[in-house]
Amino acid sequence: MKRAVIVGTGTVAGIAAVLALNPDPASQTASAATTKSSTSASSGSSAGSSSGSSSSGSSSAGSSSSGASGTYTGDAVDIGRGYGTIQLEVTVESGRIVDIQALAVPENDHRSAEISSYSVPQLIQQALDVQSAQISGISGATYTSYGFAQSLTSALQQAGL
């Protein structure tokens, strides 16, 4: 090991891991574009709609590649050990997540259902609140949050985010 420094302490929403894919300096301009495109995308060009599960997507403006809108269904992710499957449906407006629905949560046994009942709503709220990407992995990760991350990531990839 050459060097390792702490970059933050305290409580950081675990969901940050979901979005921590690759902060790229080149996309800072896309960030700025997102800020200005705040209009609701209820109609307009369908140039931005993706194939597959996109149901009502439409791009609010052709000038911004980050302004994806629509509803995207993430992969159904088997979290392993027979606990069950998690699958999310993500609604994106102008490049931001505005809603997340759990289409399936792990509930193959009583304990899994219990964990899902409190953890999935928390994860959804954190994803909506944070939309932050400061960590790239979790040491000691839990099954539920892992599956959540995978399903959300796949939905966002469909959204082109």
Binding site: G10, S31, T34, Q131, A133, L161
Partner: peptide
């Protein structure tokens, strides 16, 4: 340290 500042999705993915 301070918590990381939230950023927009587009700048992160």
């Amino acid at each position: 340290m301070a918590e990381p500042a939230p950023a927009s999705l587009a700048s992160l993915l």
